[in-house]
């Protein structure tokens, strides 16, 4: 089996990544580069960076409405494939997996075994609720997932953030009548964590707004939002 030689020269790696995104690599060179990317995460990051740099060239085109028949054709094809879709979800990308894993008192081995036994459709709970917190560049930072029946919220931090030495992002739930509940500080390092939901008698999550505010790092008022609002949105029920 032939092995693909990985380019070690920094400038060459960047040049290949940029030309891959620009589209100037011919068929064979492009195929070789794609094989390199398969086993080279750093190269994939360079490609993503170049994709982002050149994206305005495509995003800036004047939109043109496609004919209605295109959607009908897409719909006909996707509808047939629907049953297999959830099986395509890689298990480590499924927030329910992480939630179940972290809540389990059994060993990791048992949790993984359960995942293999339980069909994917059953893993996805019907009452799952999710909100994605974006930053000002519209980049997702946190994914918060729970359900009406869960006592915990699972928070996935998608990127490291730095709010400075004396500031933190505080998470809240608010309702239209002015009721405000503090959930605590949001993590600043990428990863997964659980946060306990406070008791909320007579209130439901589907009516709540998820709010993130910028507060002092230590001893901020947990009863009232005093800092500037960074984000506010409702859960989506899945």
């Amino acid at each position: 089996m032939s092995r693909i030689r990985q380019p070690h020269n920094d400038a060459l790696r960047d040049a290949l990544a940029s030309q891959y995104i620009l589209g100037t690599l011919d068929g064979a060179a492009r195929a070789r580069f794609e094989k390199m990317m398969d086993s080279d995460p750093e190269l994939r990051i360079r490609v993503q960076e170049w994709s982002h740099r050149l994206a305005p060239m495509a995003n800036g085109l004047t939109p043109v409405e496609p004919p209605a028949k295109v959607w009908k054709q897409i719909q006909a094809r996707t509808h047939k494939r629907r049953p297999g879709l959830l099986l395509k979800l890689r298990f480590w990308e499924n927030l329910n997996f992480w939630r179940r894993l972290s809540m389990a008192t059994a060993s990791l081995l048992v949790a993984v075994s359960v995942l293999w036994i339980v069909p994917s459709q059953q893993v996805a709970q019907k009452d799952s609720m999710m909100v994605v917190v974006n930053n000002r560049f519209d980049q997702p930072v946190w994914v918060i997932e729970t359900s009406a029946s869960d006592k915990m919220m699972m928070i996935k931090t998608l990127r490291d953030i730095d709010m400075g030495p004396d500031k933190t992002c505080a998470l809240w739930l608010t309702w239209d009548d002015g009721m405000t509940m503090s959930l605590g500080q949001l993590p600043e390092k990428s990863g997964m964590m659980e946060m306990e939901k406070p008791p909320m008698p007579g209130r439901t999550l589907d009516k709540a707004r998820v709010v993130v505010s910028l507060e002092p790092m230590n001893n901020y008022d947990k009863k009232t939002i005093k800092g500037p609002l960074l984000f506010s949105d409702k859960f989506v029920t899945i």
């Binding site: 990051i45 993503q48 982002h52 994206a55 494939r81 879709l85 395509k88 998608l158 990127r159």
Partner: peptide
Amino acid sequence: WNHAARYQPERAQAT
């Protein structure tokens, strides 16, 4: 549709 689960929001904007 087939690869939506592979989208990694921390790596690229959706558009």
